[in-house]
């Protein structure tokens, strides 16, 4: 095939390959550079690092404000993953299997948050809370982030549910199982991997989110992204690189587990 290519096709292939390689480099290089910088022994940023040290990791772990913010973020993300799963999975069920009037409108509304920038959801929540004399707090952050992340869970669950063979439910009924038993024995086990993926992605998104958090989070117990947002602007030591490397490490650990349990191909969908 490749032997007798027209000149234009050779050029086309080269251009395609070069651009693709550049894009892939662009995608992964920044994260790798950040990880490399985090091992810098000196007090300022340099690439390549002048040596290898874990000094800035020690610095990060010794910083009470930072470790506290990590704990806050972990709790917030767990809560958001829990809320969105509890709300999103049944909603996806109705969206796919339901035959009620106004289904199209309901589906559109369920996916509406994905058209809203995080900032707008954040500000709207801030104003709405203020109207009832609620100040920005991590409870408000959880509620707002759950709005932001809900379409994510619903879409993943919907895609999986739509892919399920409805005849499996009929087979289950034919073999004597009621609706509830069919859901528990047939639907849920097949939904499982998709739900794990949805929960993981929601967790990571909630953990990383800064656009909603800047408007709704507590002034004292700040979550990690907000803490990081201020650090990036006012701190020039490799400490930020160390935190970033840890975040990247956490995300990759989650993704590895997912790849093992769910399969990477499915994550892309």
């Amino acid at each position: 095939m490749t032997k007798n290519l027209a000149p234009i096709d050779r050029i086309g292939r080269v251009v395609l390959g070069v651009v693709a390689a550049f894009s892939l480099l662009l995608l992964v290089a920044p994260s790798l550079i950040v990880v490399a910088i985090s091992f810098e022994p000196r007090g300022f940023i340099a690439f390549p690092p002048s040596g290898f040290s874990l000094r800035w990791y020690e610095h990060v772990f010794a910083n009470r404000q930072l470790t506290d913010s990590v704990v806050v973020s972990l709790w917030v993300s767990l809560a958001v993953a829990g809320i969105t799963l509890a709300l999103g999975v049944p909603a996806a069920f109705a969206s796919v299997r339901g035959t009620f009037a106004g289904k199209a409108a309901a589906n559109a509304f369920l996916l509406a948050p994905q058209m809203m920038p995080g900032m707008v959801i954040g500000i709207a929540s801030l104003f709405f809370g203020a109207y009832f004399a609620f100040r920005a707090s991590n409870a408000m952050l959880i509620l707002a982030l759950s709005v932001f992340c809900l379409p994510f869970v619903i879409r993943i669950a919907m895609a999986r549910l739509a892919g399920l063979d409805p005849r499996l439910d009929e087979a289950s009924a034919n073999l004597g199982a009621g609706k509830l038993e069919t859901f528990v024995r047939v639907t849920l086990p097949q939904l499982g991997p998709a739900l794990v993926a949805a929960a993981a992605f929601t967790f990571i998104e909630a953990f990383d989110n800064v656009t909603v958090a800047l408007f709704t989070s507590d002034v004292r117990g700040r979550p990690l992204p907000v803490e990081l947002y201020y650090l990036v602007q006012y701190d020039s030591t490799p400490a930020i690189a160390a935190i970033s490397a840890l975040e990247i490490g956490l995300s990759f650990a989650i993704m590895l587990v997912l790849a093992r349990t769910v399969g990477l191909e499915r994550l892309g969908r």
């Binding site: 063979d165 005849r167 499996l168 009929e170 087979a171 289950s172 034919n174 073999l175 004597g176 199982a177 038993e181 024995r185 047939v186 086990p189 097949q190």
Partner: peptide, 26 residues
Amino acid sequence: VGYVFQSYALFPHLDVAANVAYGLRV
């Protein structure tokens, strides 16, 4: 009423024995 579906509708997450046992477990 026993029913054999077109393309069979076997439960993909259950092995052969568990598929056959399904109705008994229920």
